[in-house]
Protein backbone atom coordinates (compact mmCIF):
# COMPACT_ATOMS: atom_id res chain seq x y z
CA UNK A 1 0.00 0.00 0.00
CA UNK A 2 2.80 2.43 0.79
CA UNK A 3 3.96 2.27 -2.81
CA UNK A 4 0.47 3.06 -4.09
CA UNK A 5 0.04 5.97 -1.68
CA UNK A 6 3.43 7.38 -2.59
CA UNK A 7 2.73 6.97 -6.29
CA UNK A 8 -0.58 8.77 -5.93
CA UNK A 9 0.83 11.60 -3.86
CA UNK A 10 2.06 13.22 -7.09
CA UNK A 11 -0.60 15.14 -9.09
CA UNK A 12 0.92 14.35 -12.51
CA UNK A 13 0.76 10.63 -11.75
CA UNK A 14 -2.86 10.90 -10.72
CA UNK A 15 -3.54 12.67 -14.02
CA UNK A 16 -1.69 9.93 -15.92
CA UNK A 17 -3.74 7.30 -14.14
CA UNK A 18 -6.90 9.09 -15.16
CA UNK A 19 -5.74 9.13 -18.80
CA UNK A 20 -5.08 5.39 -18.92
CA UNK A 21 -8.10 4.39 -16.89
CA UNK A 22 -10.33 3.45 -19.80
CA UNK A 23 -7.88 3.25 -22.69
CA UNK A 24 -4.40 1.90 -23.05
CA UNK A 25 -1.93 4.50 -24.28
CA UNK A 26 1.69 4.77 -25.30
CA UNK A 27 4.22 6.97 -23.51
CA UNK A 28 4.20 9.44 -26.40
CA UNK A 29 0.44 9.62 -26.36
CA UNK A 30 0.45 10.26 -22.62
CA UNK A 31 3.31 12.79 -22.82
CA UNK A 32 1.34 14.85 -25.36
CA UNK A 33 -1.07 15.72 -22.57
CA UNK A 34 1.57 17.24 -20.31
CA UNK A 35 3.93 20.20 -20.47
CA UNK A 36 6.78 18.03 -19.17
CA UNK A 37 9.42 16.00 -21.02
CA UNK A 38 8.86 12.47 -22.22
CA UNK A 39 11.59 11.03 -19.96
CA UNK A 40 9.80 12.63 -17.01
CA UNK A 41 6.58 10.90 -18.04
CA UNK A 42 8.47 7.61 -18.43
CA UNK A 43 9.76 8.05 -14.91
CA UNK A 44 6.23 8.62 -13.58
CA UNK A 45 5.02 5.56 -15.46
CA UNK A 46 7.76 3.48 -13.89
CA UNK A 47 6.63 4.57 -10.43
CA UNK A 48 3.04 3.70 -11.29
CA UNK A 49 4.13 0.35 -12.67
CA UNK A 50 6.15 -0.49 -9.57
CA UNK A 51 3.17 0.42 -7.41
CA UNK A 52 1.14 -1.98 -9.56
CA UNK A 53 -1.27 0.78 -10.46
CA UNK A 54 -0.74 0.29 -14.21
CA UNK A 55 -0.05 -2.69 -16.42
CA UNK A 56 2.11 -2.63 -19.54
CA UNK A 57 1.65 -4.52 -22.78
CA UNK A 58 4.44 -4.56 -25.35
CA UNK A 59 3.66 -4.69 -29.03
CA UNK A 60 6.77 -4.52 -31.20
CA UNK A 61 8.77 -1.57 -29.88
CA UNK A 62 5.72 0.09 -28.39
CA UNK A 63 4.62 -0.18 -24.81
CA UNK A 64 0.98 0.34 -23.97
CA UNK A 65 -0.02 1.44 -20.48
CA UNK A 66 -3.33 0.85 -18.81
CA UNK A 67 -4.67 1.46 -15.28
CA UNK A 68 -4.93 -1.53 -13.00
CA UNK A 69 -7.86 -0.75 -10.67
CA UNK A 70 -7.11 -3.70 -8.35
CA UNK A 71 -3.97 -1.80 -7.37
CA UNK A 72 -6.19 0.64 -5.56
CA UNK A 73 -7.79 -1.88 -3.22
CA UNK A 74 -4.77 -1.30 -1.01
CA UNK A 75 -6.07 2.16 -0.19
CA UNK A 76 -9.04 0.69 1.61
CA UNK A 77 -6.82 -1.87 3.34
CA UNK A 78 -4.70 0.97 4.61
CA UNK A 79 -7.68 2.72 6.15
CA UNK A 80 -8.70 -0.61 7.71
CA UNK A 81 -5.27 -0.66 9.27
CA UNK A 82 -5.59 2.87 10.59
CA UNK A 83 -8.84 2.11 12.37
CA UNK A 84 -7.67 -1.30 13.57
CA UNK A 85 -4.69 0.39 15.19
CA UNK A 86 -6.94 3.08 16.63
CA UNK A 87 -9.38 0.60 18.15
CA UNK A 88 -6.52 -1.39 19.57
CA UNK A 89 -5.21 1.72 21.31
CA UNK A 90 -8.73 2.45 22.53
CA UNK A 91 -8.93 -1.03 24.04
CA UNK A 92 -5.55 -0.68 25.75
CA UNK A 93 -6.38 2.72 27.21
CA UNK A 94 -9.83 1.74 28.48
CA UNK A 95 -8.52 -1.47 30.01
CA UNK A 96 -5.60 0.35 31.59
CA UNK A 97 -8.03 2.80 33.17
CA UNK A 98 -10.21 -0.03 34.46
CA UNK A 99 -7.20 -1.71 36.00
CA UNK A 100 -6.05 1.57 37.56
CA UNK A 101 -9.47 2.22 39.06
CA UNK A 102 -9.71 -1.28 40.51
CA UNK A 103 -6.27 -0.87 42.04
CA UNK A 104 -7.20 2.50 43.57
CA UNK A 105 -10.49 1.17 44.89
CA UNK A 106 -8.88 -1.78 46.60
CA UNK A 107 -6.13 0.47 47.97
CA UNK A 108 -8.66 2.87 49.45
CA UNK A 109 -10.64 -0.05 50.89
CA UNK A 110 -7.48 -1.29 52.54
CA UNK A 111 -6.70 2.19 53.90
CA UNK A 112 -10.25 2.43 55.16
CA UNK A 113 -10.05 -0.88 56.95
CA UNK A 114 -6.78 0.15 58.54
CA UNK A 115 -8.27 3.41 59.80
CA UNK A 116 -11.24 1.57 61.25
CA UNK A 117 -9.05 -0.94 63.05
CA UNK A 118 -7.07 1.91 64.62
CA UNK A 119 -10.17 3.50 66.08
Amino acid sequence: MDAAARALAEPTRREILRLVRDDERTVGDIADNFPVSRPAISQHLRVLEEAELVTVRSEGTRRYYRARPEGLTGLRDWLDGFWALGLDRLRLEVEREQWQQRKERSASRRAHRQEESHE
Binding site: L79, D80, W83, L87, L90, E95
Partner: peptide, 9 residues
Protein backbone atom coordinates in the same frame (compact mmCIF):
# COMPACT_ATOMS: atom_id res chain seq x y z
CA UNK B 1 -14.46 0.08 6.56
CA UNK B 2 -16.01 -2.25 9.18
CA UNK B 3 -14.25 -3.40 12.32
CA UNK B 4 -15.15 -5.01 15.62
CA UNK B 5 -13.18 -5.33 18.83
CA UNK B 6 -13.84 -6.58 22.37
CA UNK B 7 -12.84 -4.51 25.38
CA UNK B 8 -12.73 -5.77 28.97
CA UNK B 9 -14.65 -2.83 30.40
Amino acid sequence: VELEISIAA
